[in-house]
Amino acid sequence: MAKRLQRASETVFAPEDPEFQIAPMVDVLLVILLFFVSITSAETIKARPQSLRVLELPVAKDSKKKETSAGEVVINAGWEDGSGMLEVAEVSTSKFADPDRMRQFLRDAVKADPSLRALIRADRKVEYGFINQIMLVCTQEGISNITFAVVDKERQG
């Protein structure tokens, strides 16, 4: 009797062959894939310079992540042949060297939004004298909140 009971319990509780479940694995893989696709493509589309060469932004590891692009004017500043070049998409589609050319645009923009801020996307080679001129124009037109675009790490390749 005892032997028969033992055999029966072995039959009932015998460990089954663990089968490799492919369906949950595919589910998990799909979720991981979706995650990586979303974080890779969620990069904000910036106002890239049209006529300036690609800007090499300076690196700042302690910079803050940008919260919003609302209420800001983007000023691209490059350095070509020893002098500063500017481009503000709303002002002109071509580059220009004189920061005074964006004065009227900034004045109108500040009128429309008094809390406007300026985002200066300057190449790392631009001299401070030129940046200073840009900041001066911004301040004179009523923009006191100025931010500089930086990258969190050196671009590879």
């Binding site: 893989l29 974080i39 890779t40 700042a60 909140n145 931010t147 675009a149 930086v150 990258v151 969190d152």
Partner: peptide
């Protein structure tokens, strides 16, 4: 799917994000 995951993981690691450093302009 494994290949795609590898691709996107590598792309995510190499992504350089644009941040900002702010100041208050003089004269405020």
């Amino acid at each position: 799917m494994f290949v795609l995951i590898l691709f996107f993981m590598t792309a995510a690691m190499m992504k350089v994000s644009e941040n900002e450093l702010g100041i208050k302009a003089a004269g405020t």
